[in-house]
């Protein structure tokens, strides 16, 4: 679904990620793990060209979507981001009502019919298990929700525009354990419907969630991929000593 070849990311001329080559299979969950600062977030930002609006960032290498170069597959970044959604570490609903949060991107993509908008809102809120909690207060500010509810709203907002791929950057790490578990269950239930790339610092979570796993590492200040494969295989029988000590908690 998404493949990269020798993807490099640099900020103001300083390379922070080099030669990242991955393949995310359709409908599967790809876990991205590695110590802090090894370029996982930068990698995700390159995939939906968010790097375009990050000052100083530049990207080289190839990214393909469904076998096609993303530059030819999508005429614009706006179009690209309709197909590749993103969830951030900190829940970031807009400072407006729950309903407006969901409707704003939908209207942007040409859906103006009120009834249709209402249907989509309800269905995505049900998908993320938020409908019963918020159906009576859709017109209240989204900022009044709890952190976990906000994050599920952000996921609902992202899937409302029907992307095929979802990039998730530590979606559970700013949540309390209960909310984190709810969000994890939600991501698990999305397997098969979306191709998911998820960054996490929680190795147990990576093991539970992901079908394939990619391990990033920093060498000489530059991030690099040092191991990848099916999650269970990598966890059980990696031949890489660094990976082994990282996965067993002795390093990183």
């Amino acid at each position: 679904m998404i493949t990269t070849e020798n993807l490099c990311v640099s900020y103001n001329g300083r390379t922070v990620l080099r030669d990242a080559t991955i393949e995310a299979k359709p409908g599967s969950i790809l876990g991205l793990v590695g110590p802090s600062g090894c370029g996982k977030s930068s990698f995700l930002a390159a995939l939906n060209r968010l790097t375009e609006i990050i000052p100083g960032a530049s990207v080289s290498g190839r990214i393909q979507f469904d076998g096609q170069d993303i530059d030819t597959a999508f005429p614009s970044s706006v179009e690209l981001r309709r197909h590749i959604g993103m969830i951030f570490q900190k829940p970031n609903p807009f400072a407006m009502s729950i309903r407006r949060n969901l409707e704003l991107p939908l209207r942007e993509h040409g859906i103006h019919d009120r009834q249709h908008l209402g249907q989509i809102c309800e269905s995505v809120l049900r998908d993320v298990g938020l409908w019963d909690e918020v159906s009576t207060r859709l017109d209240q500010s989204a900022l009044n929700l709890s952190g976990g509810q906000q994050q599920r709203l952000c996921i609902a907002r992202a899937i409302a525009i029907k992307p095929q791929v979802l990039l998730m950057d530590e979606p559970c790490s700013s949540l309390d354990p209960m909310s984190a578990e709810r969000v994890e269950q939600l991501i698990d239930s999305m397997r098969g419907q979306y191709t998911i790339l998820i960054v996490t610092h929680n190795l147990a979570q990576a093991r539970r969630l992901s079908d394939q796993i990619t391990i990033f590492w920093t060498e000489d200040g530059v991030g690099r991929i040092i191991e990848q494969g099916d999650t269970e295989t990598v966890f059980n029988e990696t031949s890489n000593a660094i990976v082994d000590s990282y996965l067993t908690g002795r390093k990183g």
Partner: peptide, 25 residues
């Protein structure tokens, strides 16, 4: 900046981000 990133990641155009998200805040 998170507001801008969130909005951009949802495929919103620059002018929409400015008028609907940034300026209201």
């Amino acid at each position: 900046a998170e507001y801008r990133y969130a909005a951009a990641a949802l495929g919103m155009k620059r002018t929409t981000i400015l008028f609907r998200v940034v300026l209201p805040v």
